[in-house]
Every structure is written in C-alpha cells, then in structure tokens.
Amino acid sequence: MAAIVVEDIRKSYGDLTAVDGVSFTVAEGEFFGILGPNGAGKTTTLEIVEGLRRPDGGSVRLLGENPFPRNVKLLPRVGVQLQASAFFEKLSAREQLETFAALYGVGPARAREVLDLVGLADKAETREDRLSGGQRQRLSIACALVHDPDVVFLDEPTAALDPQARRNLWDVLRAIQARGKTIVYTTHYLDEAEVLCDRVAIMDSGRVLALDTPAALVRGLDAPVRVVLERGALAAATAAGLPGADEVTEDDQSLTISTRTPAPLLSALAERGTLDGLQVRTATLEDVFLHQTGREYRA
C-alpha cells in the first residue's frame, strides 16, 4: 500500500506560485527525497502533505487519510522534524524528548531509546542551547521520532552542517529506514540524495521535473563518462588521439577526456603509465538538473 498519494497539488501566495501541480506516490518503507534549489517549492509541498497547509487544488492521502484540516487520528502516526530551534526554552535534551513524548502519551523510557538512536546518549543532560549545530539537528530528528511514527518528514535535516556531521546524520537516517519507517525528506544536496534515497523527485519553480531512482535518472541522461587527469600528465593532442576519446578539454588544473567507451580509454592510459591522480566521473543528479532546466544547479 502507498503511504502517501499526492495528486496535482497547487499552492499560491499572492502572485507567487509556490507549488504548481505536483503529483507523486511514496510506498511504505520507502526513503523518498524531494530535491531542488531554495525556493523550488519543496517546503510548501511538504507542509501540504503534513496537513499544515490547505492546498489551493489537488488532493493528498496520508496513510489513507486526508491530513487537512488537523486530523487528530493521523497525528500519532506522523513525525515531523522542524527547524533545529523548535525546542522548549532551557530544557536538556532528555527533558525535551520526555516532554514531546508525553504529548503523545509515550513514557520517558522511549526518550532514552531515541537519544541512543540519534547518538546523543552522552548529551542527555546538556541543555538544548549548549548543543552544537549537528547535535541540535539530531535532537530535532529525535523529537520527530519519539512517538514511533510510521511516516517521518524531514525538512532539510542536513542543511548548514559540516561534512562530518552530515555523514553522522546519514547513518541516523539509514537506521530509521532500517526500522521500516517511511521517510520523506527534502534537501538541496543532490549528492546526498543520490546516496540515501530510494527514489527522488527533482523540483524547480513549483514543479516536479523528474522522478525516479537516482540511478535510473542518471542512466536516462546517457551522459558521457569523464576521465580527469592532472594537467601536464598528457598533451591534449595525444589525449584526443586515444581510443574512445570523444572530446578533450583543458583548464588550469586538469585535463578532461569525455568518453562513451571508458574501458579501452582506461587501458590505453594504463599502458602509458598515466594513472596517477586519475579520476573517473560519471554523471550525477546535478547533471540531471542541468539537463532538465538548462542551467547549472545552485543550491
């Protein structure tokens, strides 16, 4: 059964069309990503699915129910992570979680469990305002999970985190999915979505541009593989003459050879002993975005 069915939802604020006919379905247990630059309409889409906003048009079924207006039957089954500041003043991490747990009629033992899950067990007694950015982010995810919901919504959970904290959070997100939860999350990091998500919807200007597994989206591009060498490792003219080389470009740092048949090219390079510092780059979701919109992806 589908956990979420969204059909042709629309939302405008005055002249601004935030969501312009968005449809998608999320299966139970799926890790679904909504990607796109800032202002693409990701957050509004999420808020409509969560039942916080009424769509101007279209329909949403969340676990078989209509989430708007506030559907009290649905609330215990849904967890929503909000900004990393949505905490009570001056409470420790444990106290925050115990308070939120009590709102759902869940006992304090669960708070401990969720702290372990997000790796904050040793920060249980630390006040929220004394946690680091990454820790606060993890605490806000813990708050969304404390009542053991079936569907979890995360709005840009990894925004503004340093790379180490981002990767720690990935482990947390994977652990949540391993518990059989349906996860819907937004991000503007395409590389991250590629790693985490079962399926992604790429949004821009309120519309879904593409929707599939990251691998299928990249495959569908039929983009060339790029082999990058350090500048000076090989003359550009020589590179152009290698088997399988379609196009050669050179900049201050590196020499890039585009190819659709990487195998013969790589063995030719190996014969010449120029494998040092060599990188092979396949297309990414950023290329999908570029292909769909005709412009570079800017988060």
Binding site: L75, P76, V80, L82, S85, A86, E89, L103
Partner: peptide, 17 residues
C-alpha cells in the same frame, strides 16, 4: 511569540494535544 517564531507552536499543533 517565541513559540510561533521557533515553530514550537507548529510542533504542538502536530501533536495530539
């Protein structure tokens, strides 16, 4: 005011209280 700004109100609205 501070709960509205910090989205604690939203959090409460999303909980069955």
């Amino acid at each position: 005011v501070s709960w509205r700004r910090k989205q604690v109100l939203r959090k409460l609205r999303l909980a069955p209280v």
